[in-house]
Design a protein around this nucleic acid. Structure first.
Lengths: 192, 192, 192, 192
DNA sequence: TATGAATGAGAATTCATTCAT
DNA sequence: GATGAATGAATTCTCATTCAT
């Protein structure tokens, strides 16, 4: 990577970091581009060299951060070499929950903006994400369930986990996450 | 109600209707108060006589609209006089889904802004909402499940339904709502 | 006119005056809206209460100013009660030339932006403008020339006068206006 | 011409072509240098190696294009070997009109920016342009008209033609060019 | 010569909120 | 209570120009 390339990457990263910090602490609406560039230590025009507008950098942040969480979770899960699908899945889900318990701000930013569409995009750029689906496929390999239905079940479990995390970690509703966990795990067991 | 009172109510309602229309079609961020008052046919200052700001009227709209949907759904469900809890619940859920299939815009507005907190508020102002909980209580009356756990299950099912509606009706992901329904119903059956 | 109405008119006029001054002295491109409002002594937002953008106020200024010049010229001409069309027309043209000799800045602003379209608009709002056409009609009343052709001749003479004024008064090309006048008058005599 | 020289000329020409295309289609104000260089396929800095700013390249384009039209028109006219001045002049004028009928965009760009000053500049660089004046001189050779007056008449006719072309071809006012032509030709006949 | 990333001043525009009528 | 003109801070976004490579 040339010096120029390095410098470009550095500037882009400064912008990512600054925007992420401001989005999580002040909220998206209350963050102005002028604040992002100030915090990143670059000129205003530089922002527009890399991003179309505030929502462009937001989308890219959401994609990066959520992919990171999922990657980390699936890698850690695979390292455990589970033999049983149920245990493996619950470990994976639990890893995500514990992650978000420690990083509420990220959860807040990601959740309301995360969608299956972004998840699919992550497929391409982060190959670990594919491992999540493969885990499910292995879990259902002795059943006659068609591929699409496996995907739907995966989707339902992910959505459910996301919803519960958001409500209980951020809003403490209808109870805090530790109280919700047993019933969530129970539900997931029933689903699979 | 005096003539003056009527006039006031009328103005307030115009504002509600105008704001709802604009929020659903243009989005919340892209709707200015000046547009709301213009559409409502009242003066700018009048808005501030009834609401604090844009988010004040939004919250009230969300509360009204979501309570309306749930009220309608539970009333219709009760009218059917189901004897079996499972059938009753699925009818209720299905009613909501079919409602949102016909009114995507409302779903879009409500979902991203609905929370268990608003749901609890609705308890107070709309007594039909309490019926939803009572339906669950009856469903679990022969079990030893504590009150809080029943509430959590209700919550989980509501969140799951909301998530699935949003993804499949608005985004068609991972499949359209009619394809998702069987698997969602199956999941709910397993949960309860 | 109520106090509020008066105040509005006053603000609008301040904006007109400030914009006219800046457009003529600094040029259109180099005049910012922030300068206009500053000079007019009103807030930035006030500008947008009355005009869409810089070109909106420019168009209105062009229409006003050019109508004013033509009105003044035709009124003065009619006051002289000429009996001969040629003499009347040349007096009218000369009046315009002398006007612009004294107000080069207005000429510069108006000319490149003036068009027959604006002239037609002026017909509606300033009834004196119609007198210009009536003068021509009377001049040609004993000929069989169709109405449209009279209009075309009027147009040609107006365009020619405008062009010559602009080149010779502003650019001194190909000679100054006093040198150009005899040949212009000669040309007009030949045309009519 | 060396390879380097060729390459330079090529870049300069790309810039000319790109700028001309953008000026005619988007307008001068709405064309940014960044767009010109993008379309020309050269780097931003390269622009400043050849031109001072946007108005520098504009002036050069205007000079080139207008000289081209006039050159073409006078060459074609001379090829016809007219013996009568009136016929020769009208052929020349008509050639210009027909040219602009086919290339409205060029007319639009040139007219508002053309001046006698540019015309005089063209004298130096394009010797054919001098032929236009010579045609006039021959036309008036048997009169006692001083040189300056001949130039003024030429100027008046050129200005008039330009004005009429612009109004009737671009704006269709007060009539389309084909309706205006007879009356314009008539006027020119009277003038000479 | 040529490049194009970076700059940052500054332009246009919006809009929540106030307040005299 | 109702109005809507006025405000001006805040925000987005553009773009000519520079300069290290």
């Amino acid at each position: 990577m040339s010096k120029v390339e390095k410098n470009k990457k550095q500037k882009e990263n400064s912008l990512y970091d600054a925007a992420y910090d401001l989005f999580t602490t002040k909220g998206i609406n209350d963050t102005a581009i002028s604040e992002i560039v100030k915090k990143a230590g670059v000129a205003k025009g530089t922002f527009y060299l890399y991003f179309k507008d505030k929502y462009d950098i937001l989308d890219k942040i959401i994609l990066n951060k959520s992919s990171q969480v999922l990657s980390e979770a699936i890698i850690e899960t695979k390292n455990k070499n589970f033999t049983e699908f149920e245990k493996e899945l619950l470990y994976f889900i639990n890893y995500i929950i514990e992650f978000f318990k420690k990083d509420k701000l990220m959860l807040k930013l990601i959740y309301k903006n995360l969608s299956w569409g972004i998840f699919k995009k992550a497929y391409r750029d982060y190959e670990e994400i594919q491992e999540i689906y493969l885990m499910f496929e292995r879990g259902y390999e002795n059943t006659s369930l068609p591929k699409e239905d496996i995907e739907k079940i995966l989707f339902i479990i992910m959505e459910l986990t996301g919803s519960i995390c958001y409500s209980s970690i951020i809003l403490n509703e209808p109870a805090n996450i530790d109280e919700m966990k047993p019933i969530l795990f129970d539900t997931i067991k029933k689903i699979i």
